[in-house]
Nucleic acid binder design. Sequence first.
DNA 1: TCACTAAGGCAAATTATTTGCTTTTGTACG
DNA 2: CGTACAAAAGCAAATAATTTGCCTTAGTGA
Lengths: 185, 185
Amino acid sequence: MGYRENPRPGGRSARVQAAVHQSVRDMLATMDRADITIPLIAQRANVTPSTIYRRWGDLQELLADVAASRLRPEGDPAKIGSPREDLEAWAEQYADEMASGVGRQMLRDILSAADVANAEKCSGYTQQQLAVFITRAKERGEPFPALTELMDHVISPIIYRILFDQAPGPDYVRKLIAKVMSKER
Amino acid sequence: MGYRENPRPGGRSARVQAAVHQSVRDMLATMDRADITIPLIAQRANVTPSTIYRRWGDLQELLADVAASRLRPEGDPAKIGSPREDLEAWAEQYADEMASGVGRQMLRDILSAADVANAEKCSGYTQQQLAVFITRAKERGEPFPALTELMDHVISPIIYRILFDQAPGPDYVRKLIAKVMSKER
DNA sequence: TCACTAAGGCAAATTATTTGCTTTTGTACG
DNA sequence: CGTACAAAAGCAAATAATTTGCCTTAGTGA
């Protein structure tokens, strides 16, 4: 009795998934995190609690699933100027989103689930986005930091601060990028 | 009705806390994370469940509390050679501990609690340890990276990898340190 | 169209959580 | 010392969440 990762669109399973995800998003926006329960979600989604339990296991897994799907990027990062400028703009927005109340909560949800899959997925999204900048720079024949550099020295510090400390400011992000770029000459 | 952060030693409150913490540690070592419940912990600690609920609120808070107290360093990092060598040895052990099954789980527990206090505490411990290397270097008149540098470019990448990806190898840590030190000339 | 199967609904049984009230125990003060 | 006070623990009833067995529904493919 395994549930499909990606249910066929239009089927009943997909409708249930959509309704449940939507309920969770609504509830996260309107009520306190601690008051969200599976029976409540089920009621709002017009679904039986046991359906949710069987499909997701527990609240943490469900929240992690919803969070990961919300973190999936819509498309390629905007192209406004040089790869470096593009990266700066993107990274600032990324930091803002993650540092916001909702973003922080999504990160937490993803990390607290027993299943690591969603965390990996989320990190994968980020790497995909970063890869775009690298490709653009290569096309223009410009030097650019490698993916590892960007993950280790731009993304990681931002996320660490958000998780353990407090929000990174906007010029903090720019400093990180400046440092990582300065080694590329 | 507030509970003291640090109950007076020897009192009943302290005994209960110790018994509960011990039960949690035992259970974490012997059974699957998902099977640990508050009633079980209470039983093993010879305590009523309601005591735990009133004191910690829920399982996540309790686990976060236990994890944070396990992460408190025993003393100053070992002094084996130059500050850099000391840092390398310490960071490698740090990475190993955090990347182990237990370490990972502790990180998760700390981050999934609603209360941020434990996460901050944990980050504070790390910073205290790092400050020791900086002081030692200063005493010897040697150049050494600032605390922010170390947090951003050594600790953050290690933790990010552990949380989102997979364990960082031993030479990965050394590379991070080499990079951070190379900018100090 | 029909049979098959994955997934959802229902309801009873089990477990966990909350809460009001009582009891214990450490502490401060006379 | 002993007594009063308050913080924290115990107990048990009430409530809420979770699990599970069995049945029904709705997509899928022959």
